[in-house]
């Protein structure tokens, strides 16, 4: 069930990114946190979901023929980063955003939505 929630969240985050922008990640994750504050470790689920959303988007692009790996290496060299730098950053950044936003959302949900 937790995995299913994570996958659904990843899809929603990916859709949010496609339709809106990068800031959809914390937005969606915060809502998730509020709604799922009773679940176990919503922040962790959201963090993985965030990474999965952006990483999955790139993986799908790569499967479709987009030169993700080659471009990532060139981008890394241009930014004086190790070859894995850009891709790692692309996973860690949404993970941090989503994880923290979901954690805080869950705190808010727990504070205001829990029946006395």
């Amino acid at each position: 069930m937790a995995i299913l929630r994570m996958l659904i969240l990843a899809i929603v985050i990916a859709l949010g990114t496609i339709l809106l922008a990068w800031w959809a990640v914390p937005l969606v994750a915060a809502v998730y946190g509020v709604l799922m504050h009773r679940t176990r470790r919503p922040g962790l689920t959201a963090a993985v979901g965030g990474a999965l959303a952006w990483g999955g988007y790139l993986a799908l692009a790569s499967v479709g023929g987009a030169p993700v790996g080659r471009f990532g290496s060139a981008l890394a060299a241009s930014m004086q980063l190790p070859g894995w730098g850009p891709l790692t950053a692309t996973l860690v950044f949404p993970a941090l955003l989503a994880g923290l936003a979901a954690y805080l959302g869950a705190r808010v949900g727990g504070r205001y939505l829990t029946a006395p």
Partner: peptide, 19 residues
């Protein structure tokens, strides 16, 4: 700015979609 830069749709990675 890392948000628009790492955004896999509109950011630097957007280059691969329009390769």
């Amino acid at each position: 700015p890392l948000g628009p830069f790492l955004d896999p749709v509109r950011g630097a990675w957007g280059s691969v979609a329009y390769a």
